[in-house]
């Protein structure tokens, strides 16, 4: 194992979360393993519906029960399994030890409370401060996240701020209690490009200053390259590749990761013709293929890929990949069989 257990602040093992709908069970997260080291950043990449957000909600146990349920697995935070905690214990952890930034800054603030009140509230949930002290602290937090004239802004309502400003307020709220782990669920997706860079920079700077570990969920590989130390690539609820950020970009192993990287438009090359795409589409969550979920879209899939799901196995350079290509089995198999839908 390339990760030593002592260092990791969060370790997710074999997490399985399902949604039970009228049409049947949807395995939104289906055996996810990763860990985050202290002060480091893990990126979780994948397309919509790959189970990224559900993974983060499962960690905080914020799923809409009873529709969504964690079926099995362990979420070890500082040596303790969060899935075994009581409701009350979880409330004490949320916001205080682990907090979360949501995707949509326009809707993730309460429209009826001022920004200052909302930060102060989060502080007062976990710390015994009087109203005045909490207010002072929230003004301080606004200053910390780079909001000009924080005293004035604290008295304003969310609708009076721009999207970028609101996301800064969200960051202030989530960092108000100095959490050890910050989960950012697509923190920049809803923002425009110039603001995205500012927000990422801010998160990175605060992370360094406060020593917070960061789990960043994104579908933007640029964000990953900029922010992360490790990357977990998810497809259909499973981690298909888990590696150092450098390796993912220089030597991607799973065909899905390769496909993802190929489909990023390159600005420095003059490419004629269409953008590279991954053929096919994500299989229906109600009807996942029995083998590797990516097999129907995979250019090198062989018979075994359609039949049996590979394990997330360590390769020679310490990275983990869920693919038959990197097993001894591969050579014994015949030619690639394409089964495009």
């Amino acid at each position: 194992m390339s990760l030593t257990k002592e260092e990791s602040i969060l370790e997710v093992r074999n997490l399985r979360t399902s949604f039970f709908t009228d049409e049947g069970e949807v395995k939104a997260v289906d055996g996810v393993d990763f860990s985050i080291e202290k002060g480091k950043t893990l990126g979780i990449v994948g397309e919509s519906g790959s189970g990224k957000s559900i993974t983060s909600l499962s960690i905080l146990r914020l799923l809409q029960e009873p529709v969504g349920r964690i079926k099995e697995g362990e979420v070890i935070f500082k040596g303790e399994d969060l899935l075994k905690k009581s409701k009350k214990q979880m409330m004490a952890i949320r916001g205080n030890n682990i907090s979360m930034i949501f995707q949509e800054p326009m809707t993730s603030l309460n429209p009826t409370l001022t920004c200052g009140e909302q930060i102060a509230e989060s502080i007062r949930i976990h710390q015994k401060l009087n109203k005045k002290k909490a207010w002072e602290k929230s003004v301080e937090m606004l200053k910390l996240v780079g909001i000009p004239s924080p005293e004035k802004r604290a008295k304003q309502y969310p609708f009076e701020l721009s999207g970028g400003m609101r996301q800064r307020v969200m960051i202030a709220i989530s960092l108000a209690c100095n959490p050890e782990l910050l989960i950012a669920d697509e923190p920049t997706t809803a923002l425009d490009v110039t603001i995205q860079a500012q927000i990422l920079e801010l998160i990175k700077k605060l992370q360094e200053d406060m020593g917070t570990s960061l789990m960043i969920i994104t579908h933007d590989l640029g964000v990953v390259a900029e922010m992360c130390d490790k990357v977990a690539v998810m497809y259909c609820g499973k981690v298909v590749e888990y590696a150092d950020v450098k390796t993912v970009f220089t030597d991607p192993k799973h065909p899905y990761t390769i496909g993802l990287l190929n489909s990023v438009p390159k600005h420095d090359e003059d490419v004629e013709g269409d953008l590279a795409i991954i053929t096919g589409s994500v299989p229906s969550p109600f009807n996942l293929p029995s083998g590797c979920s990516f097999a129907p879209r995979c250019p090198s899939a062989k018979e075994i890929c359609h039949a049996t799901l590979p394990e997330l196995a360590e390769t020679s350079d310490g990275d983990k990949v869920r693919c038959w290509i990197y097993t001894d089995q591969w050579e014994k198999e015949g030619e690639a069989v394409s089964r495009h839908e």
Partner: peptide, 25 residues
């Protein structure tokens, strides 16, 4: 709405969520 999730993620209790965040809205 997302801000209810957000305040839940901050560890707020149900009574607080109902009184401060749902009722006014």
């Amino acid at each position: 709405l997302e801000y209810i999730d957000a305040i839940k993620a901050m560890g707020a209790r149900d009574t607080r969520i109902i009184i401060k965040h749902i009722l006014p809205n």
